[in-house]
Write a protein that binds this DNA or RNA. Structure first.
Length: 815
RNA sequence: GCCGAAGUGGCGGAACUGGCAGACGCGCCGGACUCAAAAUCCGGUUCCUUUCGGGGAGUGUGGGUUCGAUUCCCACCUUCGGCACCA
């Protein structure tokens, strides 16, 4: 079982490289971290499912990975040793643009480069010593995986949750593909930074907007998600309550619905605005001026539109305001967006900053209809902040009603006549999932001239991605050129048909992988529901905050749909989420272009994987951004060397079964702190400091009868961080298999101290300290405290007005 | 503008429930070892002041609650993140 070198070739030097290789082999041979699924019907036992966001296989492990997977490793080791059945798999998010762009650049097929990168990154992960169940490894580019991604797509399609529509989409001119809204940052492609272009195209969408409310409401099912992530998702969904109010075109009576969050300001609407793309514009007028404006607006990008001053053009037509029958001019202006609400607004210049700017420019009436309940009515401050204590003015029968009531009353009044209804607006749009690129899972749909859209029958899945030679996208998928693959018989009528050539967004692949892990080799279904329901929801999900919106929102959406299909029995995929911070260097994010990256494997070569792992977590709280200093790892290196020396000095000492005394007590306190910090507080830096303290203490008193016990405790507690050196020292201490040895338990009796140090204060200022028996009575303690010379000096002979006693902590005299 | 997070020594950070501010580490200073240096080990290290006993100040700023505030409350400043011509 154990390598022969271990007992015979005992050098005094800590040689991480040799130790780490040796123990990695031992774990592999012992299949130490393989976790089988429970047998069917097996009694429920304590289980934990830990998932870290799977890496994109770039071929090189970076510090972000090291932090992510070391956090997971610490949690996993602790829970395994506390007797849980722990599932901890790993996989690769292998489809996507980087591999494809590399193929275009270097002429290597993406599958070849991806698989080469996977082999490299797998090897690097092993060198870091992470306790993963490699039997469950999966990759999203594997046909055995994407077969089920396609299968799930078809189930969504059957339910009307995957659909095709013509619409304005964001296209990236560099990556030559359309993007989901979530992949557009400030009007630019999130990948390459190019400014996106609006295009009218037919694309595939997932109907995530149907789940907008559920995605908000069911945040309550999440036990422990960082507030910032919930906030980001709330912002992204962008729910706002308001009303849909129907205006009509004067003359024709054509309906012009608008969405507003301020129905209380309806009496202040002095004009009406349509987005340039609004379909009614061309019906309302054939004015050349309007057509010219619409054409011009269409050529401006969203970024340009926002930067310029508001402008617009009058259509010559009027809209009738349903609250008072007033006719107000209809304008076309590109500050109104077609994509939100109805693409038309009622403009209330007195209470909306944008409408105000527009009205000022074109001389439209500005009519105030609400004023603050009390306080100043400064000009210009009217729309500064809308609050609930405002009251209506100039609003007919609603005048002097408080704003919140007025909102309701006006909508109800209009609703009686069918001219309004309370409704909710969302910022969230449907998820655009088709991509005009090669390296992704093909969308399993066939276009038949006679039958239209025909889903690929389940028994013909997977639709395997064909090998092509030319990856360069030309605005259509490179797959379109693979004619043998494209041209097929219609599964329905047998007539000539062609395959869909777009591939799926890689976020589809990663929206369900955490369930596939539970049953990764299933070739009958994506996973067994029984097994999935045993492991999920994931007890602990760990990953970077960059996925706060995209991946986490999509995965939540997928899970809800799968639950409604009866595929799983849970509504939320990740019960707890931990977002690690980013590791910076020289005050900035690490990036290749800045040249401030740190190669973890290079440091592992020099100091050992144990030191890299430990230092990464010692940097600071793992959920905050951290600053990497090369000199810092020296400190951890010194610590591990000190541990090595201090522990080896105890090997020959007798083991005292019931160790007592201060050092034993310190050891028990350290057990309690490390356990609580990791398991309850998710604090990973402070346990290292606690073990350092313990080791420093042993080094000071190596001949203490409890020194050996304390040393064994230190080794046991550092194991989740530095598993190799811990295992080596454990075996030299004469034990076996630390990785499955029970986690130490703090003896409550040992945590209680016989004597305690009490702080003596006068007027809240520290004046003296006192060692007293823990069991001392209050009166006796006060008497002792008063007797202190230093206290006496500050009391100046006067009698304390008040004496505060906190048992076991302090006595405070107030004079 | 709206929403969220955070401000503590020279630096990273600790202080978990209102009770010893600065654990642990880096850096720096001193010492041991060395012909010497590096490495290693040991000790010191918030600031001001001191007759070397001590005294005073101190957790972004200003106020408040409290015997007592890094911690709670109010106002403000700064930094970071999200959303934003979203009606």
């Amino acid at each position: 079982m154990y390598p022969e070198t271990e007992m015979t070739d005992q050098t005094d030097q800590y040689e991480p490289k040799e130790i780490e290789q040796r123990w990695q082999r031992v774990w592999e041979d012992a299949r130490a971290f393989h976790t089988p699924n429970p047998e069917p019907g097996q009694v429920e036992e304590a289980k934990t499912y830990v998932v870290e966001m799977l890496p994109y296989p770039s071929g090189e492990l970076h510090m972000g990975h090291v932090l992510n997977y070391t956090i997971g490793d610490v949690v996993v080791h602790l829970r395994r040793r506390r007797g849980y059945r722990v599932l901890r798999p790993m996989g690769y998010d292998a489809f996507g643009l980087p591999a494809e762009n590399a193929a275009i650049r270097d002429g290597v097929h993406p599958r070849i480069s991806t698989e080469r990168n996977i082999a490299a990154i797998r090897d690097q992960m092993r060198r870091m010593g992470w306790a993963m169940d490699w039997d469950r490894e999966l990759s999203t580019h594997d046909p055995e995986y994407y077969r089920w991604t396609q299968w799930l797509f078809l189930r969504f399609y059957e339910r009307g949750l995957a659909y095709r529509k013509v619409g304005l989409v964001n296209g990236c001119p560099v990556d030559q593909t359309v993007l989901a809204n979530e992949q557009v940052i400030d009007g630019h492609c999130e990948r390459c930074g190019a400014e996106v272009e609006a295009k009218n195209l037919t694309q595939w969408y997932f109907k995530i907007t149907d789940y907008a409310d559920v995605l908000l409401d069911e945040m309550d099912l999440l036990e422990h998600w960082p507030e910032r992530v919930l906030t980001m998702q709330r912002n992204w969904i962008g729910r706002s309550e308001g009303a849909r109010v129907t205006f009509r075109v004067a003359g024709s009576g054509e309906e012009l619905p608008v969405f507003t969050t301020r129905p209380d300001t309806l009496f202040g609407a002095t004009f009406f605005v349509l987005a340039p793309e609004h379909p009614l514009v061309s019906q309302l007028t054939d004015s050349e001026e309007v057509r010219e404006y619409v054409r011009h607006a269409g050529s401006r990008s969203a970024v340009e539109r926002e930067k310029k001053e508001k402008d617009g053009v009058f259509t010559g037509r009027y809209a009738i305001n349903p609250v008072n029958g007033e006719e107000i001019p209809i304008w076309v202006a590109d500050y109104v967006l077609m994509g939100y609400g109805t693409g038309a607004i009622m403009a209330v210049p007195a209470h909306d900053e944008r409408d105000h700017a527009f009205a000022e420019r074109y001389g439209v009436e500005i009519r105030p209809v609400v004023r603050p309940a009390e306080g100043d009515l400064e000009a210009g401050a009217a729309f500064a902040a809308h609050t609930d204590d405002e009251v209506l003015i100039n609003s007919g029968r609603f005048t002097s009603l408080p704003s919140p009531q007025a909102k309701k009353a006006i909508v109800e009044w209009l609703a009686e006549r069918g001219e309004a209804e309370a409704t909710i607006g969302y910022r969230l749009r449907d998820w655009l999932l088709s991509r005009q690129r090669y390296w992704g899972a093909p969308i399993p749909i066939i276009h038949c001239e006679r039958c239209g859209l025909v889903p690929v029958p389940d028994d013909q899945l997977p639709v395997v991605l064909p090998d092509v030679e030319e990856f360069l996208p030309k605005g259509r998928s490179p797959l379109a050129a693979a004619e043998d693959w494209v041209n097929v018989d219609c599964p329905n009528c047998g007539g000539p048909a062609s395959r869909e050539t777009d591939t799926m967004d890689t976020f589809v692949d990663s929206s369900w992988y955490f369930i596939r892990y539970t049953d990764p080799k299933n070739d009958q279904e994506p996973f067994s529901r029984e097994i999935a329901d045993y492991w999920l929801p994931v007890n602990q999900y760990i990953g970077g905050v960059e996925h706060a919106i995209l991946h986490l929102l999509y995965a939540r959406f997928f899970t809800k749909v799968m639950q409604e299909m009866g595929l799983v029995g849970f509504r939320e995929p990740f019960a707890r989420l931990f977002n690690q911070g980013m590791i910076h260097k020289d005050g900035a994010k690490m990036s290749k272009s800045k040249g401030n990256t740190v190669d973890p494997l290079a440091f592992a070569d020099r100091y050992g994987a144990d030191a890299v792992r430990t230092f990464t977590l010692f940097l600071g709280p793992a959920d905050q951004d951290m600053e990497w200093h090369d000199s810092g790892i020296e400190g951890v290196w010194r610590f591990l060397n000190k541990l090595w020396r201090v522990v080896l000095a105890q090997v020959e000492k007798p083991r005292v079964e019931q160790a007592s005394g201060l050092l034993a007590q310190k050891a028990h306190q350290t057990i309690a702190k490390v356990t609580d910090d990791i398991d309850r507080r998710f604090a990973f830096n402070t346990p290292i400091a606690a073990v350092m303290e313990l080791v420093n203490e042993i080094a000071r008193t190596p001949d203490d009868p409890a020194a050996r016990f304390a040393a064994e405790t230190a080794v046991s507690l550092i194991q989740p961080y530095a598993p190799h050196v811990a295992e080596e020292l454990w075996s030299r201490l004469g034990h076996e298999r630390l990785w499955e040895s029970p986690w130490p338990e703090a003896d409550p009796a040992m945590l209680e101290r016989d004597t305690v140090e009490v702080v003596l204060q006068v007027n809240g200022k520290l004046r003296d300290r006192l060692q007293v028996p823990a069991s001392i009575g209050e009166e006796e303690l006060v008497a002792l405290a008063r007797a202190s010379e230093r206290v006496q000096a500050h009391l100046n002979g006067s009698e304390p007005k008040q004496t505060i006693v906190v048992p076991g902590r302090l006595v405070n005299f107030v004079v």
